[in-house]
Amino acid sequence: MNDGIGLDAYLARIGHEGPLAPDLATLATLHDAHVRAIPFEAIDPLLGRPVSLDLPVIHDKLVAGRRGGYCFEQNLLFKAILERVGFNVVGLAGRVRWMSPPGAPLGPRTHMLLKVDAPEGPHLADVGFGACLIDAPLRFATGVEQRTTMGTFLLLESEGIYELRAKQPQGWRSMYVFTLEAQLPSDYMLGNWFTSTSPLAPFTKNLTMEHIVGDRRWKIVNRRLVTEARDGEVAVERDIADAASLAETMRTHFGMEPPAPAEEILARIGA
């Protein structure tokens, strides 16, 4: 299949050497390996750079270039890989609720997620929610707590609208809401354009990164480095002192080189 994706290069990038089959074991293995190998990062919107959704460009950036990306890039790449393996995958869109107070109006569809059919039943797959990375596919089973290595998640449904929540130290926190309406590439183009260019979108003014390593989540939020244990329990939090510290943090905990001088990245925060 000539879709611009090198399957062998992707598998090497995530460190997967086992068998591949359209079953739950493969889906879970690839999902976990992906989030542990490819960090979430939205540095290009912060730098005012365009974010392409063309698969060859995404492959060059996340696989060959050993960068990270945000939800549209991550989940478009993962969708293409799963389809290559033989899965039936439907791209969905979510309305992010992570920073919204209870009862706030719903915002636009600015998040991409996947519905994946496996012999064991449909599963939600999402390797690109950077506020709380999901490290395993979740069953489309509502009202049931689902524990993964790094978190506990709860899927709810009311009148055809699904809500995904994550357990946090303060209790359940809404991640996003979505329906089962399949999205077109043009739908993602609009969401990606808003998310990567609008001054109302958080990624154009904030440095946001997350990576799962071992039993810890590493997060950069502007000039703060946060390390979390399971279910969002903060283990360490400290300031990123300067550009040199930011560059070293990216290399050490996120496995990537800064895509621009670290001084430039810091200068763009809040600009």
Rank of each mutant, 00 (worst) to 15 (best):
G232L: 01
K167A: 15
T204W: 05
P101H: 02
P50S: 12
G65W: 08
N206F: 08
A80L: 11
K115T: 09
P19G: 08
T249E: 03
L225F: 11
E73N: 05
L55Q: 03
H34W: 07
E159C: 06
I161Q: 11
L180D: 06
P202K: 02
V116N: 04
G130P: 06
F140E: 07
P199M: 01
G15Q: 06
C71S: 02
S198Y: 07
T227K: 10
T197Q: 09
T148R: 01
K61R: 12
L266T: 05
R147C: 04
E163L: 15
A9M: 03
D239Y: 04
P259R: 00
D242M: 00
G151H: 00
V63I: 15
T197C: 10
L180G: 09
G160Q: 06
M189K: 05
N222W: 04
L184E: 13
E233F: 08
L184F: 13
L62F: 07
G86S: 09
A12Y: 01
A28G: 11
A37E: 07
L124P: 00
H211F: 04
L164D: 03
G94N: 12
V234Q: 08
F140T: 13
T29M: 10
E233C: 00
E210W: 00
V96I: 14
M256K: 05
K79A: 14
A28V: 08
L184D: 12
R238E: 13
H211L: 03
P258D: 10
H123C: 15
R36C: 11
H16F: 13
G18Y: 04
S245Q: 15
G6A: 01
R147G: 02
E41G: 04
P56A: 04
K167H: 14
D187R: 07
L124Y: 05
E257P: 03
T252V: 13
Q168L: 10
T197H: 14
D32S: 12
